[in-house]
Structure formats: C-alpha cells, structure tokens
C-alpha cells in the first residue's frame, strides 16, 4: 500500500526511517549499558528526540497532519520526564 509507486518523498522518508532505527538501537545500547543513572536519562531524552523525528516522517508518509499533535505532546512529556528524573536523583541522596 505504502510501498507502491515509490516516489522521491517516500524514498527519502524510508531512508530516514532506516537511519533513525539504527540510531534507536544505538541509543538503546546506551540506555541498557550506561554506567551511571544520568547516562540512562540522556539516552531516554535522545530516544524521545528520535521518536519526534519518526513521527515527522510518518506524518509525511501518510499525509495525515493529525500526527503532529502527538509530537507536541511527546516533547512536553519528555521534558516533564527529564525534570522529574533529575529532581528524583538529586533529592535521593539528601
């Protein structure tokens, strides 16, 4: 359905998806291995940025502009999660 009549824009989106999925694997490696806890928070932040990129590509691929709303919500929730993790780590040692 999507792969029929491969145009320029679809090829670009699929290539971007390929790169982004490799980047997701790299970020997940850091999330699983990260020596200290702030490393894992950085990896989570990176994963959310990658997810925003994936949402942008999917918006173009399906021509449904509704998916941009999820990008708005995802950035805000990612910020809240980062701040909450940081506050938790900071207060834990008091």
């Amino acid at each position: 359905m999507i792969l029929q009549e491969l145009t320029l824009i679809k090829g670009a989106v699929l290539f971007a998806f390929f790169i982004l999925i490799i980047s997701l694997f790299l970020a997940f490696f850091r999330l699983a291995r990260g020596p200290v806890l702030p490393d894992r928070i950085v990896a989570l932040d990176l994963i959310v940025s990658l997810a925003v990129g994936l949402i942008a590509g999917y918006t173009i691929l399906t021509k449904q502009s509704v998916f941009l709303d999820t990008a708005v919500v995802l950035t805000m929730i990612a910020f809240l999660g980062t701040v909450a993790f940081a506050r938790y780590l900071e207060r834990r040692w008091l």
């Binding site: 320029l8 090829g11 670009a12 971007a16 790169i19 490799i22 950085v42 940025s49 990129g53 173009i60």
Partner: peptide
C-alpha cells in the same frame, strides 16, 4: 518542494544518527 523536503528529512536523520553515535 519535494526535493527540499527530501533533503531536509535525510539531513535531519543524519544529524540524529550523529547524535546517537556520539552517545555510544
């Protein structure tokens, strides 16, 4: 417009890949 869009998409994905590579 399609060319501009494709170039922006691929370059953005490459920037994110560089970021992930740096994180590792």
């Amino acid at each position: 417009r399609e060319w501009i869009c494709a170039i922006l998409l691929v370059s953005g994905a490459l920037f994110m890949f560089v970021g992930a590579l740096g994180v590792v």
